[in-house]
Design a binder for these strands. Structure first.
Lengths: 137, 137
DNA sequence: AAATTCACTTGTTTTTTGCAAGTAAATTTT
DNA sequence: AAAATTTACTTGCAAAAAACAAGTGAATTT
């Protein structure tokens, strides 16, 4: 676990992974404008380190040569259980502002949430997990 | 989750919680000598912040007035699922040095591990969940 | 009563972060 | 086709945090 903490023992790395996972962020600009206020130099540095450690990879955008697509690797998407447990912990113990009913549903359906997260990643389905939850039940 | 990351977005806080949970660390000195090399000023600061945010509490050692016992709160022990998933992720994707068979067992028995962790916390049973393995990592 | 242990605190140096501005290549607009 | 704009960064600098080294005081051991 110390290994994980060498990688994630900072304020931004896990937030980046979370934004890729639940908000389907792909570009540098999307990360910048997803509201947490990360500095451009730090974002560039974290993306580089996450890539170096095999958690994400880059691919060019074929429609716009300025853009770079960041995408989670298998190792990256495997962080979903960690992120989910963190999300649930935060919802239980802190005031997250997230709708409580949604979180209760997620807590009851961990396996479904994880399977769905992985499916969307595999199929490059950009629908975000969070807003759209509970529809199937 | 951003809330959680304000708290845990640093190299040491989660490591402290982990050491309390799986190694049953209680005193300042135990944290110092549990091998990660945290500085005394940083350790003092993190313990204070973890206490301020209700993740741990302190109680005096009745047998030795110099010592302070740090103990996880309910909110703190509720981090067990997060830590467990991190541990499992690290074991799968990084070279942790932890005996592989042990991790496979843990992955298969998440619920048991969590129940046992909580039981030991509740009963103040200091038996560590994980045996100490060497230089670790 | 002297030495030692324990849980810290207090400087000081080094590293990391945050902020503002800038750059180069690709695309869009005129 | 020239100019303006967008995108993904880099660079330089001040401020905050961390690592390092040393010290303090109360409690305990010798």
């Amino acid at each position: 676990m110390s290994v994980s903490l060498d990688m994630f023992g900072d304020r931004w790395s896990l937030l980046i992974v979370r934004d890729m996972m639940v908000r389907a962020n792909k570009t540098f600009k999307e990360f910048l404008s997803s509201g947490e206020g990360i500095a451009t130099n730090v974002l560039a540095d974290r993306l580089r380190r996450l890539e170096d450690s095999g958690i994400l990879m880059t691919e060019p955008d074929l429609e716009d040569g300025r853009r770079v697509h960041y995408r989670l690797t298998e190792k990256g998407i495997d962080l979903a259980p960690v992120l989910l447990e963190m999300l649930l912990w935060g919802a239980k113990h802190e005031d997250t502002g997230a709708p409580c009913a949604v979180m209760v549903e997620m807590a009851k359906n961990r396996e479904w949430v994880l399977a769905e997260t992985r499916r969307r990643w595999a199929e490059r389905d950009p629908t975000p997990i969070l807003p759209k939850f509970g529809a199937g039940k």
